[in-house]
Design a protein around this nucleic acid. Structure first.
Length: 727
DNA sequence: TAACAGAGAAAAAAA
DNA sequence: TTCTCTGTTA
């Protein structure tokens, strides 16, 4: 049985899959069969009887990855999906907290705030405390609080050195109080609370240490500090502070005496592209040190891309310093060169993509096997326009997901309110939606009376005293109580139906001339609830939890064969026959905001590496000399990343094109006497290559403004600056 | 209370 | 350019 499981694995994959119970770091390059190794290892542990379904925990970052893993395992073995702990960090923490809500100090039916809910809660807090939100922008405060939690710090552990930080700390504390009062937890809290639960409860920790002997981690390079600390605790590696605490509070035999679980960490430092949201690549080194890892396996054979594409990726990423080190190779041939197109404008670039896609499609490639990637979502507009004109079907990834849509959030807020009237967030969301005559003034009065009495807004609303709008508020209270009275004996989908009808949401969107899509989404919500009770229990809390933890897919409904448009971030983990990597310009990719920070540049480079390694057979790289950005035409030079790819791998499709062949659109200014027209390429002995952005003055007073990319944008006096015209 | 106009900002994103 | 937020006006 296990022999068939292992056939087709290469030596490194086989070694990883069949490792004994030791901590191991698997450096899995792009396209090296990482998911296969993870799932086969689980299947192998189970079939050889080394572990029971009970004893394995596997953690990922996205629901998609978790589902994929479960699907693949069950294709190899009959498993009980419930007894296997496979899920996202947040999903697994939620599972722990639901099981041990009492020990964790949470109400049994605690609700989960997503980012938008959290921000709303913080705004409300600032208003209640009368804090100037100019001085303490809600968004900044949210980041501050989340950052503290991700470092594992409660307000008591936060250092404050001046009035400003003391205030931040104070606000963090008030925010926690508010969450506790309302019975809600945010995403970071799921992690932190679950971490503290294990840290402070020695028997419980001992139980899970004894249970999960095998812990597998996917995308390890994306873990943040708290996630790593959580893993350490769960693996029985203790936490200096934690074991100290438990030694004081629980003398006697310690859980720390159990042998640590075998942590199988799979990651790729070269694909670490989420530092901006707290990912800490340093966890890979920490892991090796803390767990005394002496098994590091490199998966370097790539099964996805052809040679030239891999060579380009390897050469590019070699410019980063401090890598753990890896070099992808393939048995496939070199394949096509990388096609490079330098367009005069973003319009021309889009047209190029359209023409090539059409050609490939004519040659028999399906559109869904082709992707257009860009650094920032704003770039999709021009592309979409050109694709639309050409009548090519396309699908854009990004934007709002199903459970993030306003109509869905409104409907869920009614459900939340029925389930828990103390939920001020939910109440404020819908008390006047659809409009029922309860305005700001009324809400202020309600808010003050709630605060004064130390009660929820719901209770304040029930006790009347809402000023002139008392009648409207009373009607709202009656509405919600009416719904709650009727929910007895209703199934979840029936309850959803009831909520969207009686709240007036359906009627509101029916009368709204742009509400058609929203109506359909509300209907889909009822179907989603019906599906949920088939696959799970008929529980409102569980449904609301899933809605918070799984906001749904980013893509538009799949239907016909369509070209895929997405940001490079969104493309991670995917692969395509042909990839168009667009906008390879200084200032865009790498982005302006990264240009002065060497670490940020390295992350941009890893991002480019991820983009390149998405392609199987064909890779196109394009750039535009001029581009409409923020309503203005900007000129840029080619990205440094392009010059970091060996020339012999590149095939320039239009190098040395005649400016006359450029579409009329962009350069309307005539060429000045010195020849440095806007858009011209120039070279400076110190600043290197640049592009002329503007000029003024004549003769001895002539100045030109040049964008040198990395060296910045500079005004230079032509008389003194040693500028030479290149093109 | 709701609609509207003007100002200001604009990288990426999972749970 | 286009979206979001805020303050003003009907």
């Amino acid at each position: 049985m296990s022999s068939s499981l292992l056939t087709g694995l290469n030596p490194e994959q086989l070694a990883a899959v069949t490792l004994p119970a030791v901590p191991a770091l698997i450096l899995a390059g792009a396209g090296s069969g990482k998911t296969r190794v993870l799932t086969t290892r689980i299947a192998w542990l189970l079939t050889t009887g080394q572990a029971s379904q009970h004893g394995i925990l596997a953690v990922t970052f996205t629901n998609k990855a978790a589902k994929e893993m479960l699907t693949r395992i069950s294709a190899q073995l009959p498993i009980n999906a419930r007894s296997l702990w496979v899920g996202t960090f947040h999903g697994l923490c939620n599972r722990l907290l639901r099981l041990h809500w009492k020990d964790a100090g949470l109400p049994q039916t605690f609700q989960i705030l997503d980012t938008a809910d959290q921000l709303a809660a913080i705004k409300r807090l600032l208003k209640a405390l009368n804090i100037d939100d100019e001085k303490y922008p809600p968004r900044d405060l949210m980041h501050y609080i989340n950052a503290q939690k991700e470092e594992g710090r409660r307000p008591a552990e936060v250092e404050a050195w001046d009035d400003y930080t003391r205030q931040l700390k104070q606000l963090y504390e008030e925010y926690e109080r508010q969450c506790r009062r309302e019975g809600v937890v945010d995403f970071a809290e799921l992690l932190l609370r679950s971490y503290e639960l294990l840290r402070d409860n020695a028997p419980l920790r001992g139980h899970y240490n004894a249970r999960f002997r095998y812990i597998l981690v996917d995308e390890f390079q994306d873990t943040n500090r708290l996630q790593y600390k959580w893993l350490k605790l769960l693996a029985g590696k203790g936490d200096e502070l934690g074991s100290l605490l438990s030694r004081v509070s629980a003398p006697g035999p310690l859980a720390a005496q159990t042998t640590p679980a075998a942590v199988f960490a799979v990651g790729d430092d070269d694909q670490s592209i989420y530092a901006f949201r707290g990912a800490n690549v340093g966890n890979m080194a920490d892991f090796q040190r803390d767990f005394a890892v002496d098994t590091v396996i490199r998966l370097e054979q790539n099964y996805r891309s052809q040679g030239n594409i891999l060579d380009a990726a390897n050469a590019l990423i070699a410019h980063n310093r401090g890598r753990l080190g890896k070099n992808l190779w393939t048995e496939a041939g070199a394949g096509d060169p990388i096609r490079v197109f330098e367009a005069a404008s973003d319009f021309e670039e889009a047209q190029f993509v359209v023409d090539e896609v059409k050609q490939l499609h004519r040659d028999g490639e399906s559109l869904s096997e082709m992707a257009v990637l860009y650094r920032s979502n704003a770039q999709s507009r021009v592309l979409e326009h050109a694709l639309f004109q050409a009548g090519l079907p396309y699908r854009v990834y990004g934007g709002l997901r199903f459970f993030e849509r306003q109509e869905i959030k409104h409907a869920l807020a009614y459900l939340r309110l029925i389930a828990n009237p103390e939920d001020d967030n939910a109440l404020l969301r819908v008390i006047n939606f659809p409009a029922r005559g309860i305005g700001n003034r009324t809400l202020e009065i309600l808010g003050e009376s709630a605060r004064g009495g130390g009660v929820s807004i719901w209770q304040a609303a029930c006790s009347g005293g809402a000023g002139r709008s008392a009648a409207a508020v009373g009607k709202f209270v009656t509405l919600i109580e009416g719904m709650r009275a009727q929910m007895e004996g209703l199934s979840l989908p029936e309850l959803v139906q009831l909520a969207i009808e009686q709240s007036g949401l359906i009627e509101f969107y029916r009368n709204d001339k742009e509400g058609q899509d929203r109506l359909e989404n509300l209907e889909q919500l009822v179907s989603a609830a019906a599906r949920f009770v088939q696959e799970n229990e008929d529980s409102v809390t569980d449904f609301l939890t899933q809605a918070s933890l799984e906001a749904g897919e980013h893509e538009a409904a799949p239907g016909q064969d369509a070209l895929q448009l997405m940001s490079v971030h969104a493309a991670k983990g995917l692969e395509f026959h042909a990839v168009f990597l667009t906008g390879l310009e200084e200032g865009l990719f790498p982005h302006d905001n990264s240009i002065n920070d060497p670490e940020a540049i390295e992350e941009e480079r890893r991002l480019a590496y991820v983009a390149i390694t998405r392609a199987r057979k064909r890779l196109y790289i394009s750039l535009a000399q001029s581009r409409m950005l923020h309503g203005q035409t900007r000129f840029a030079i080619a990205s440094r990343f392009l010059s970091e790819i060996p020339e012999d791998l590149l095939k320039w499709l239009n190098r040395g094109y005649a400016p006359a062949a450029m579409p009329a659109r962009q350069i309307e200014r005539s060429t000045p006497e010195h020849g440095m027209r806007v858009g011209a390429s120039v070279e400076h002995p110190k600043f290197g290559m640049g592009v002329v952005v503007d000029y003024d003055g004549m003769g001895k007073n002539a100045n030109v403004q040049v964008n040198f990319g990395a060296a910045g944008v500079k005004w230079l006096a032509l008389e003194y600056a040693k500028l030479t015209l290149v093109s």
